[in-house]
Design a protein around this nucleic acid. Structure first.
Lengths: 230, 230
DNA sequence: CTTTTTTATTGATATATATCAATCAAAATT
DNA sequence: AATTTTGATTGATATATATCAATAAAAAAG
């Protein structure tokens, strides 16, 4: 493949943000306990319930994180773009995965031995504090999510989903949506039929436009209002 | 008041779990940047939107943490018993509170200067790692909460609330409920009328009994089944 | 190119739960 | 003790959204 790609963490341009508090030796250590894996769309990176052995850093593609439910209703708790590591709280509690990670697009990820990372939490305070900041940001996102699914109606929920998708997940506008309607439903916590009806309504009102898999957001402020008032 | 109560963190029997990774000097430092405050039921400890200056450790009582919403619908994201500190992710992100903390019973809390705590995150790795473990446990709780409010029906939601209240918040069974029906509703993400109807149903089926403010759980397993199947 | 399968869309109906209103009980105030 | 206020309970109704079913469009397979 044509992607630039290093066998060495120190040279990997993709780690910038995530490992900025590491020195040369630390990166070397990580490097020696790391494998880079390529996943095809639809492939599972790790599955809910299994033990966690690796700290996973997405270097390319798009990953879907979802909680698996009985009666095949899933709940997407987040999407991940490079460069970012997947924070799995389960590692710090019972060393098991509490959600499933699946490649939504062609994805590459680095798997790092989790014990090496654990050592770093003890030896590198700056990294450790940065980590706390990152998971705190995620926690605030979960608060919003809980508010959204408890008090909002379908319009507010889908508005939240659209606001989340752009620019965080799809930086361009219009963007090519690599998720299906069921994914949008699992992300919004409603049914796919409701997603379709809401998107249609938004389109009729000139808030967005949809052409095949292309979505363009015309009126972000309107979406924010809809999100706020539920 | 008749409570035993020290002017000194090192002697305070209530800090055991939370500050177990601190040495004498560290506790002394905390001690000198600490005030102990007593709150009456209904008093606000800190309010959503305000800046955070203090790390708060509950030493007595019961605290309600809730997200304030428009059209006076609140959402209780958790209850706190001693001895525990309130993890406010906002501190690590924008240094503002993202929820309100209110004394639900007569409560005492220690307020510690947040910069002193921040120093400790850098100097004491064991404390820092313990902190990550604690917030990870909370994050897993939030996952459950999101699952609950997205996919479950009122019976499952109230079952979840009851399972949360006992034994975590009220260790005895039967327990004296210091929360009103609206609180149970805000905790379950439904209306108080629905809470009442569900509790009545549970009582009719012999799962629980209610006498005034006393609730007794007879059939915990039944509640778990109801929680699971939604 | 045709057929099969999957995904998206639309419409009709069912249902869970919120909303509204009234009553009852308990607590607080006078 | 009488009155006011607050919270709990019950019932009737409205409504949002899930469910079900049918069709259309797109993608995959033969």
């Amino acid at each position: 493949m044509a992607q630039e790609y290093h066998n060495n963490c120190s040279l990997c341009g993709r780690n910038s943000e995530v490992f900025k508090y590491m020195d040369k030796d630390e990166l070397k250590k990580i490097d020696s306990h790391r494998v880079s894996i390529r996943y095809k769309p639809g492939e599972i990176i790790f599955k809910q319930g299994t033990p966690c052995y690796n700290f996973i850093c997405i270097t390319q593609g798009l990953v879907k994180l979802y909680i698996e439910h009985q009666r095949n209703r899933n709940l997407i708790i987040g999407l991940m773009r490079p460069v970012n590591y997947i924070y799995e709280p389960g590692f710090f509690v019972d060393k098991h995965h509490h959600f499933t990670a699946l490649a939504a697009e062609e994805t590459t990820a680095c798997l790092i031995d989790i014990n090496v990372m654990k050592e770093l939490f003890f030896s590198n305070q700056a990294f450790s504090y940065d980590f706390i900041q990152r998971i705190s940001r995620q926690a605030l996102g979960l608060f919003d999510r809980i508010s959204s699914c408890t008090h909002k109606h379908v319009f507010g929920k889908v508005a939240d989903t659209l606001l989340y998708l752009h620019p965080k997940i799809y930086p361009e506008n219009p963007f090519y949506l690599s998720l299906c309607r069921q994914d949008l439903a699992d992300l919004s916590g409603i049914t796919k039929e409701s997603v379709i009806r809401v998107l249609k309504k938004f389109q009729e009102e000139g808030i967005i436009s949809i052409n095949g898999d292309q979505i363009e957001i015309f009126d972000r402020e309107r979406l924010e209002v809809i999100s706020d008032k539920g």
